[in-house]
């Protein structure tokens, strides 16, 4: 019986997470278009894109790239699974990091100059947001008493009450993780930002589709972290937190459309300063 429930939950996550991720990406494109006074694609466009990419003939520049892209996608899915099953948050962070490492390695394996530049920038971006993700986990652990994601639903008050600064820090690095302007250094979603597309320059067909799907899962995990800040024992908060996640995502879209890309050095220094201040102040307050 327990095995059956577990299987059902896993299946549920495997269906809901990409659906949510894809819809969010579609929403992002529509909202962005409206901000630019365009009509924009239908909201289901990301799904059409992926299906079309998957059916196209693939080309490749290196035999290893596909493996790394696949591994990256698998570990992204695994991360969301761990998170959805309410397991240890640190494990999620580590699995997530592993997925990022594989994605970076796919860039290295292509041996392409443009891809390589994007890869190095992607690495810098990881360095920008990784401390914050860890600090979010630490903060969550301090207020909930355990690293288990599931325990958030048993807390007496939402975590954001005691982690307001860490939450601000998380919002800041969210645009680094989701590769939104001004931090879309490694690859941009927008055609107008760059002609050659960073890490994924050499990817085609099914590989590109896998990167897209990975990105859906990444988005879900990133917003899952936001969700953790608002959810607590009251069932009303479960839905409210979802709405707030959506608001956070739309805020990222707004920022994405309002800023120009910064240089990597500024990106690194700015995020580290923000993380140091928000994380440091909040952790100090918790431990007073």
């Amino acid at each position: 019986m327990r095995a059956l429930i577990l299987t059902l939950r896993i299946l549920g996550i495997l269906i809901l997470a990409p659906a949510a991720g894809g819809l969010l990406t579609g929403l992002d494109r529509v909202v962005s278009a409206r901000m630019q006074r365009r009509k924009g694609p239908p909201i289901l466009q990301p799904f059409y894109d992926v299906m079309k990419l998957a059916r196209k003939q693939s080309t490749t520049v290196s035999s290893m790239t596909r493996y790394f892209v696949t591994l990256s996608m698998c570990f992204n899915i695994f991360t969301v699974l761990l998170f959805g099953l309410g397991l240890d948050l640190m494990l999620c962070v580590f699995a997530f990091t592993l997925a990022c490492v594989f994605f970076v390695l796919s860039g290295y394996s292509s041996n392409s100059p443009f891809s390589f530049v994007g890869t190095e920038r992607e690495l810098v971006q990881i360095m920008c947001y990784e401390p914050m993700v860890l600090i979010v986990a630490f903060g969550y652990y301090q207020v909930s008493g355990s690293f288990n994601v599931g325990d958030a639903f048993r807390m007496g008050s939402p975590a954001v009450m005691r982690l307001p600064f860490i939450f601000i820090g998380l919002l800041y690095v969210l645009s680094v993780k989701l590769r939104k302007s001004p931090f879309d250094l490694s690859m941009s979603h927008h055609g107008h930002q760059e002609i050659v597309k960073g890490v994924i320059t050499e990817l085609t067909g099914i590989c590109l589709a896998m990167v897209e799907v990975s990105h859906w899962f990444e988005t879900v995990f990133a917003l899952g972290l936001v969700y953790l800040f608002f959810v607590y024992a009251s069932p009303a908060s479960w839905a409210a937190a979802l709405a707030l996640c959506l608001a956070a995502f739309l805020m990222e879209t707004l920022i994405d459309n309002a800023f120009a890309r910064v240089k990597w050095k500024l990106a690194l220094q700015a995020s580290w300063i923000v993380i140091f201040v928000t994380g440091g102040v909040n952790l100090l307050l918790l431990n007073l």
């Binding site: 490492v101 970076v104 290295y108 360095m127 990784e130 401390p131 914050m132 860890l134």
Partner: peptide
């Protein structure tokens, strides 16, 4: 705790770029 968080991400950076070089060709 802060030094650990920042230090770990830096560690990730230098190991991954080495690993990348082993794979690049």
């Amino acid at each position: 705790v802060l030094m650990l968080a920042f230090g770990s991400s830096v560690t990730l950076f230098f190991w991954t770029k080495w690993l990348g070089k082993l794979i690049a060709n």
